[in-house]
Design a protein around this nucleic acid. Structure first.
Ligand code: SF4
Ligand code: SF4
Lengths: 165, 165
DNA sequence: TTAATTGCGGATAATATATATCCTAATTAA
DNA sequence: TTAATTAGGATATATATTATCCGCAATTAA
């Protein structure tokens, strides 16, 4: 019943990509190094983000990843959905149809209150995450960073990003 | 990333127990038969409910399970928490401390916006489930049942429950 | 054209969790 | 005492997560 840690990785990766100037890209090696996570597994998450259309990929020399849309339009739910999928997490196995007193089809016109409540709960969960755009994450992280660290991050980007104008 | 199906089983089991007259109890064999699920595994869920204080158990001959409190005061969140635990499902591994531009301790006074958003999302999820008492589930199920089925359920309880006055 | 770089996709292994079952001990009513 | 019943632990199986690797396609620079 856990959420894969890949979600956190992907969120941080997107936050880094949001710092890049337009048109610049970062290779997965650089991203993995920056985040301090194993490169091959991060690649999985990045591929998922790519399939979901959240990042653009550029193959070949000087290739890499960049955000596909403005950071304002990418929410934490977008990232979560790309990694974990959108399938309901509560699985209804229609227990009420079982047993000696099972309900007939006619008595099951709709999901019962149990299933309805879980659907509702997942819905508000989704909406809460959808309300947080990547820009908010970046702004929050920038707010607590010291000037020295901002400098270091800027330098690192200059050194590792490709496609800088 | 899934919720155990035991949650659904336990919810249905509690809904059945809520139909019993005060003081009556049902054995796990009877419950498993009623729900059409494997008895030994349902026992796991019932033990979890017992540990959480949601049901009372009575050992020995003519023993069984009964609700520990009024059905009005037992919510779907109570049942979910008893089965799945209350640990956060989003795991924050403090990635921002990693890598060449890792943040210092002084720069991490609080969880970042990513962690905060997931905490908030889990919170509203929890509250949504907590707002649904067992009585609502029972009322909803009763509303769609035919008279014949209500009769059959009543008969079944008469036949299988112990401690009937 | 050629060689080097880089992401994509599939295959695979290791680990953790969820699912399911069984057995023994403890408890209680009759 | 005897029969019934749950608690709890040990165990097996299935599934999901986590992590890694390799060959291929795409791209670019020399
Ligand atoms: S819809 Fe409700 S009653 Fe039917 S199986 Fe799902 S949870 Fe149980
Ligand atoms: S608190 Fe935020 S920044 Fe730190 S590791 Fe968790 S998600 Fe990442």
């Amino acid at each position: 019943m856990k959420i894969g840690k890949g979600v956190e990785w992907a969120a941080h990766a997107c936050a880094v990509l949001a710092l890049l100037p337009p048109g610049a890209a970062l290779s997965r090696e650089c991203l993995a190094d920056y985040l301090g996570v194993p490169p091959p597994y991060l690649a999985k998450q990045l591929q998922a983000l790519s399939r979901a259309g959240l990042v653009l990929t550029q193959r070949g020399a000087a290739g890499g990843y960049q955000l596909a849309r403005d950071a304002e339009t990418i929410s934490l739910w977008d990232i979560t959905a790309a990694l974990e999928g959108t399938a309901p997490r509560f699985r209804c196995t229609e227990i009420r149809r079982n047993g000696p007193c099972g309900a007939s089809s006619a008595e099951c016109p709709a999901p019962c209150d149990i299933a309805a409540a879980f659907q509702q709960a997942e819905s508000v969960y989704r909406e809460t995450l959808a309300a947080v755009p990547l820009t908010q994450v970046v702004a929050g992280a920038t707010a607590v960073a010291t000037d020295g660290r901002k400098q270091r991050i800027g330098d690192w980007i200059q050194q590792n990003a490709s496609g800088l104008s």
